[in-house]
Design a protein around this nucleic acid. Structure first.
Lengths: 169, 169
DNA sequence: TCCTGATCGTTCGGCTACGAACGTTTGGGT
DNA sequence: ACCCAAACGTTCGTAGCCGAACGATCAGGA
């Protein structure tokens, strides 16, 4: 990021360009949305490089691993929801994790459409090792914000997510 | 999102699970990071479905289009920076957009390593049509926040991005 | 007991997405 | 004038990523 075409300069150019098109457009909201996406990208890339890649894990692979770690015996569809990816994507990711011996799939007896996901002992050991490192990155990434600002940030983002999911229905 | 394995429930389960592993882990920061990523995903998906897909555009395709729209005659590497994607990804996306007649590549005379990107008249017309719709989605998505909260949110996220980019060097 | 609709996980096609390696081009130092 | 390091955009391999379509399975009503 050369900082020439980064946040500040882009925002200035965008504001001028957009207001010329139609002054009624809401640039403040555009800025907010753009910063959400950019922050998510930055965090993802940073965590991937610093923690995940050395363990040969992708971001999504880690998230799926994490979700199953939290909810042991999770059904596939819930795992997809919790990881915020589609069912089709999950199938592929789980296959990758399974082939590495980190996760197992088991068909349920009472309803044979369902498949439960569980971590293997190796998977659990990996998470016990990696998660503290991952959390350390998370801490470092938001270290510039006070506790109150962190809470406000989280609350605002949660509001956005809930509003979107409501509009969906 | 069934809301069973969604934000609230997941956070409760995660907190219990993590504090058991090591009480020193910072759950507040984890929550913040998770909400950033989740919000970005939600916004992306929503905008894609509501505005972009009807025009057969992907999110990244739109972002690249937008960046070139703002900075007319942009060099490839700056476009990648501004769109927050890698150079390799940009090559493919530009190729797609070019094949649809929305964008042109032109090698620079003074430095033949560089390639300038420009929108075609069709590309400009498309952006003039789409961007107001896209902005309307952006507005709706953050409508639940007051202007001050929007500004705080943007500022906090910008702090995070800048901190990460600083740590990189 | 069928049959019909709903739901599950998988598969498929097409498009991102990244880092590494590559060939081309350029400018600086000698 | 010549090399050499640096920078550019492209290519490549691997993996994510989505929506749509699919077969398998289940539950409920006629």
């Amino acid at each position: 990021m050369t900082d020439q075409y980064s946040l500040v300069a882009t925002e200035r150019a965008a504001r001028a360009h957009i207001e010329q098109l139609d002054p009624a457009l809401d640039y403040e909201s555009a800025q907010t949305v753009a910063s959400i996406y950019r922050a998510a990208n930055a965090v993802r890339g940073h965590a991937t490089n610093e923690v995940l890649r050395p363990h040969d894990l992708s971001w999504t692979g880690f998230v799926v691993l994490w979700v199953v770690w939290i909810w042991d015996g999770l059904e596939t569809r819930h795992a997809a929801d919790a990881a915020a990816i589609s069912k089709g994507t999950l199938t592929g990711v789980v296959k990758t994790l399974e082939s590495r011996g980190l996760m197992t799939k088991q068909q349920r007896q009472d309803d044979r459409r369902l498949v439960d996901l569980r971590l293997t002992p190796e998977g659990i050991a990996l998470m016990n090792e990696i998660y503290p490192k991952f959390n350390a990155i998370e801490v470092k990434v938001v270290a510039g914000l006070s506790s109150k600002r962190k809470q406000d940030l989280t609350a605002s983002l949660r509001t956005i997510v809930q509003d979107i999911e409501q509009q969906k229905s």
